[in-house]
Design a protein around this nucleic acid. Structure first.
Lengths: 193, 193
DNA sequence: AAACTTGTGGAACAATCGTTCAACTAGTTT
DNA sequence: AAACTAGTTGAACGATTGTTCCACAAGTTT
């Protein structure tokens, strides 16, 4: 047979380990920031030998890039879920509140990677994928208002990260409501004419 | 005499050098990011011996903290100047456009320090001083709308940093206008009753 | 001028870093 | 089973790091 005898062959395990290393990297960034990412710290976090990250990623930079790409995907998934479930002001406010409280570390990591994209042109498309995806998915009737909303979400998140006490959904909801302007969900676009 | 003989005495020069080191640190962050900040890189940039930064700042961390505090002050000054000069949508849009184009490096540095504050509670007050100052200065009639504006400014800046081509004032102005809602300047607060 | 404080800067320390290397195991193909 | 390939690992490399130390120069006070 040319098929692998074991379902969990060499290749599959390799791919799994690769992802485990990326996940460990994200955890390190959540805990210590990008500056805390070293081959050794990632290896320790992932429970693999020191040389494993080097084996799977040519350089430390490649590892960070892979982590950003993976994180960007996750952000897009989250965003799509919000839109799919209606995208009311209340919901958006709650997501922001959770992002700066329970998921604070994760959000900090996301923004550190976001800024990394500011210095690496090849990462920018991935970093702003959620923005493009939001526009494509919602097809807003008022693009200007929608862009204002997307910008404000970023601002509320980053400002929430440096607040003494994280804002809760009740405080955030009026602001989001103001941005959605009377409607209680994303303004849907007119169908293609 | 107990007065120093020279106007430019030891203490004055020390203070000057201290500030030169902080300024050099900011330049390093603009160029290479926070991860590029080392005693040696800062010393090289400032044109002082390797041990000078250590002499003036107990630790590398202290140096970063001093740099953030200094930068935060500069941001506040900029913000006050915008408000003083009217704060029209056009003006705000232009400032954002310049921040992500000519002053791109500086803006990147500011946000890296911003995020640093997310991990250091003692820095948060300084990092969000411009926000508090904006509210105090403008005394907005509609606080919710104003907070939305401030959040959107942050978002437009950070999104501008990861754009393939930096947005210009013409593209940004409609968004800022939308946030100011018909008025062409910050809504002034009613005088104290 | 003597005593002091502050600033200056080279040498050197241990620690940690990214990365390379070579030996090795385990899975896959022929 | 022999040949091959992908994955695994510890040891070790040179480079760089933050920081300390100490001898000394400059400025200030008594």
């Amino acid at each position: 047979m040319t098929q692998p005898r074991k379902a969990d062959g060499r290749k599959a395990r390799g791919e799994k380990k690769r992802r485990a290393i990326v996940e460990a990297t994200l955890r390190v960034i959540e805990r210590d920031g990008i500056s805390g990412v070293t081959h050794r710290s990632v290896a320790r976090e992932a429970g693999v030998p020191t040389t494993a990250p080097t084996y799977y990623f040519a350089t430390l930079d490649d590892l960070l890039i892979a982590t950003l790409l993976w994180t960007a995907e996750a952000v897009c998934d989250d965003m799509l879920r919000i839109v799919a479930s209606g995208g009311t002001a209340r919901e958006i406010a709650e997501v922001i509140a959770r992002s700066v409280d329970e998921n604070r570390g994760r959000t900090l990591a996301e923004y550190e990677l976001y800024l990394l994209a500011g210095r690496r042109p090849e990462l920018r498309a991935a970093a702003r994928r959620w923005l493009d995806l939001a526009v494509e998915t919602v097809r807003p009737a008022d693009p200007v208002a929608f862009r204002a909303l997307l910008a404000a979400v970023d601002g509320l998140l980053i400002q929430g990260l440096i607040a003494d006490v994280a804002p809760n959904g009740d405080e955030l909801e009026p602001i989001v409501s103001f941005l959605i302007r009377g409607r209680d969900e994303f303004p849907a676009a007119p169908r293609e004419q």
